[in-house]
Simulated assay, not measured.
Amino acid sequence: MTRFPDEIGELAARVIYEFSAGGLMVVTAESCTGGLIAGALTEIAGSSAVVDRGFVTYSNEAKQEMIGVKAETLAAHGAVSKETALEMAAGALAKSRADLSVAVTGIAGPGGGTAEKPVGLVHLAACRKDGRSQHLEMRFGEIGRDEVRVATIRVALDLLLELAQAE
């Protein structure tokens, strides 16, 4: 069993409970978190009724091949961008049976950052089958690789809950 901070476990349990009650399924598309969002969700009993699948698309090739991110998007905006996160979320949703998706792409560090895209920059996106989507840009700073990833999981779970409740 993976040990997530209590707050992550509580948020994941809330997602599983609320999605199960609403008959909703979720799909994840993860880069910088490497499947940890899906992992947090599947730690919760009853998650099989809610979690359809998860895509770990760490490389640009995986983003393109698995969930249909366009090469032009990656060339124009880079892997860590609003545009890529939104295409990841839309692509994961299209390649699943889920009602909602969440996607994350970022720079967890400790290296890999630039002045324009520093360590701690994460783009998150969520989509619904009805076409609504949401994007967040987070700048967590150089708080450490694990801390960036945990903070990203927290925001992703909150984003799923928020979009699920949107009417």
Rank of each mutant, 00 (worst) to 15 (best):
M66S: 04
A98Y: 14
P110C: 09
R14C: 05
A89I: 08
G91N: 11
G112E: 10
V119E: 09
A29F: 02
A108K: 07
T28M: 04
S48P: 04
L157Y: 03
A76K: 15
K70M: 13
L136S: 00
I37Q: 05
V104Q: 14
E18L: 14
D6A: 15
A156S: 15
E167C: 01
V119M: 05
G34C: 04
T42K: 02
A40D: 00
A98C: 13
A115N: 06
E142L: 08
R154T: 07
K63S: 13
V26W: 04
E18M: 10
V51I: 12
G113Q: 11
F4T: 10
K70S: 15
A29P: 03
V119Q: 08
A71N: 14
V56N: 08
E30Q: 07
A45P: 14
G112W: 05
A151E: 04
A94Q: 14
L36N: 13
A85T: 10
A85N: 05
A103S: 06
R139F: 00
L124M: 13
E72S: 15
T84P: 09
A40H: 00
R128I: 07
F55K: 10
K117I: 12
K95L: 05
E30W: 13
T33Y: 09
A45F: 06
E18Q: 15
P118R: 08
C32T: 10
G34A: 14
T105V: 04
A108W: 12
G39Y: 12
L100H: 01
R149P: 07
L124K: 10
A108M: 12
Q134L: 13
P5N: 09
G113I: 08
R53I: 08
M1T: 14
K82W: 05
V56E: 06
L100K: 01
R97D: 13
S20F: 06
Q134S: 11
V80A: 11
A89L: 06
R132M: 11
S20P: 01
G106A: 06
A151I: 01
S20G: 15
A12D: 07
T42M: 07
L124C: 08
A115D: 15
A40S: 05
G144T: 03
A71R: 15
R53N: 02
T73M: 14
L100R: 01
A103W: 01
G78C: 08
A151G: 03
R3Q: 12
V80D: 12
I67K: 11
A75G: 10
D158L: 03
Q64C: 15
S31N: 08
I44M: 06
K117F: 11
V155L: 01
G144I: 04
H135L: 11
E162W: 00
R139S: 10
R128C: 13
I107D: 13
C127F: 11
T33V: 03
E142R: 15
E142Q: 12
L160R: 02
E142K: 14
V15S: 02
E30T: 09
R3S: 14
L41K: 02
E18H: 10
V155D: 00
I16E: 05
I143T: 02
K95M: 06
G111T: 14
Y58W: 07
G34H: 01
E167H: 10
G131N: 12
G39S: 15
I107Q: 13
V15G: 02
P118E: 14
T105F: 07
S133V: 02
L121S: 12
E137A: 13
E116P: 01
E147C: 03
